[in-house]
Simulated assay, not measured.
Amino acid sequence: MIKLVQNELIKWFRRPSFYVMSIILIGLSVIGVVFTIMMGSMMDDPNQGGGQQLGWKEQLQQDNENYKMTMESEPEGDYGYLERRYAINEYRIQNDLEPTTENSVWTYVSDNLGLTSIITLFVVIIAGGTIASEFTWGTIKLLMIRPIKRSRILIAKYLSVLVFMVIFFSIFFVTSFIAGAIAFGMESAPELLYMNGEVFELHPFFYIMIKLLLSSLGVIMFATIAFMISSVFRNNSLAIGISLFLLFTGAQITQLVGMKFEWAKYSPFANTNFNAIIDGMPIVSGTTFWFSIVMYLIYFVLLHVISFFTFVKRDIAA
């Protein structure tokens, strides 16, 4: 199995596209320093004027009063985000934890987490082409003549996709960390994570690792969808095209449908962004973390079953 995975990795390491993806990811991770510094200077300018300003505790108390009034005005509403903000503000007040406004390596890496969407794009392209390209180029015959079960080949291809995901996440974290450390220093403040009605105080490193882990679940699901499409259609361009279409439109369409129909929460695209669910801003209102975990596992197994039967059971066309 290890040899098969290595073989799949070597195929992509020999393609210029892998290095182009890596360079783009490195460039975006580093260039964000410039925008962070520019945004920081723009935010500082308005504060130079006069006027009385509240202390941080008074400001948080005032924010919580506004949150409470909003939630009490319509008890039936979905206020997951406000509940999260209210609980975190209360925790800061009670434990004398002033919100930090200074940039550091950890805030920079956290702000750069939006680049995981780029990682998803790259991994989907790889997953969408890993099987289909074999049929498009005719190299599938070279795999089939080997005394290796098709199921092992399929597993090796999927594992290689996951390895590339880990590589891209590692590139993102290392480059963002180095750029952030050089530009903003290593100072850190505790991060607060709100889950199941409780607030947890974490070191920024562990907080970012949790965020990356949750982000990787979304990447894995989209990679699995692309992998299944690649197995079913067996056409490189078609597999990547459909996969990218679902990546860019799946969540948006689900969100629009979810405004009118509750059953939209059963869509796979409503149960991939776990960071948004924890932040109290799910794609479809009413979606909970554990509900999404169950739906995630169901779709994950279903997609692999489809991939298995289409790749292992169907004849290899000439």
Rank of each mutant, 00 (worst) to 15 (best):
Ser17Lys: 12
Ala179Tyr: 00
Val105Arg: 07
Asn47Gly: 15
Arg234Ser: 05
Leu302Phe: 13
Phe233Ser: 05
Asn66Trp: 12
Met165His: 04
Tyr91Phe: 14
Tyr108Met: 00
Ala179Gly: 00
Glu83Ile: 00
Val123Gly: 02
Glu65Gln: 15
Asn235Val: 07
Glu58Ser: 13
Gly40Pro: 03
Val284Glu: 02
Ala264Ile: 01
Ser151Val: 12
Phe222Ile: 05
Glu8Leu: 02
Ala127Asp: 04
Val294Met: 14
Gln59Leu: 11
Val305Phe: 13
Phe200Thr: 09
Val166Asn: 09
Ser17Pro: 02
Ile316Phe: 09
Ala251Leu: 10
Asn271Phe: 03
Tyr299Ala: 01
Phe184Lys: 01
Asp78Ala: 13
Glu262Thr: 13
Ala251Asp: 12
Phe269Leu: 02
Glu74Asn: 15
Phe184Asn: 05
Asp78Gly: 10
Val232Ala: 06
Pro268Ile: 01
Asp45Cys: 06
Trp106Phe: 15
Arg234Cys: 03
Leu217Lys: 00
Val34Ile: 15
Thr254Met: 05
Lys157Ala: 09
Val232Tyr: 05
Thr224Gln: 12
Ile306Cys: 00
Met42His: 11
Ile283Gly: 11
Thr101Met: 12
Thr288Met: 03
Tyr67Phe: 15
Leu142Asp: 07
Lys3Ser: 11
Thr254Arg: 05
Val30Thr: 08
Ala132Leu: 01
Tyr91Ser: 01
Gln62Val: 08
Glu187Asp: 14
Phe308Gly: 06
Ser117His: 14
Phe135Arg: 11
Gln48Tyr: 12
Leu212Asn: 08
Phe172Ile: 01
Asn89Ile: 08
Met259Ala: 11
Leu212Ser: 11
Gly180Ser: 02
Lys157Glu: 08
Ser22Val: 13
Leu213His: 05
Glu72Pro: 05
Arg150Asp: 04
Val166Glu: 07
Gln252Leu: 15
Phe245Gln: 07
Thr100Tyr: 10
Lys141Met: 08
Ala156Tyr: 01
Val33Tyr: 00
Lys211Thr: 11
Val161Ser: 02
Ser188Gln: 14
Tyr91Gly: 01
Phe173Leu: 15
Gly241Glu: 01
Gly241Ser: 15
Ile220Pro: 00
Met69Asn: 14
Ile278Gly: 06
Gly185Leu: 03
Arg152Glu: 10
Gly55His: 06
Pro268Arg: 00
Ile178Trp: 00
Asp63Tyr: 10
Leu142Ala: 12
Gly49Asn: 11
Ala317Gln: 13
Gln94Cys: 04
Gly77Glu: 08
Glu191Ala: 15
Leu60Phe: 03
Ser215Tyr: 09
Phe200Pro: 00
Ile24Asp: 02
Asp96Gly: 06
Met228Trp: 03
Asp315Ile: 06
Ser17Thr: 14
Phe233Met: 10
Ala317Ile: 14
Glu83Ala: 08
Glu187His: 11
Phe274Lys: 07
Val5Gly: 03
Gly129Cys: 08
Ala127Val: 03
Val174His: 02
Pro46Trp: 06
Met42Gly: 11
Met71Tyr: 02
Gly49Ile: 14
Arg84Lys: 15
Val33Asp: 00
Gly280Leu: 04
Arg146Ile: 01
Ala270Leu: 07
Arg14His: 09
Leu154Ile: 04
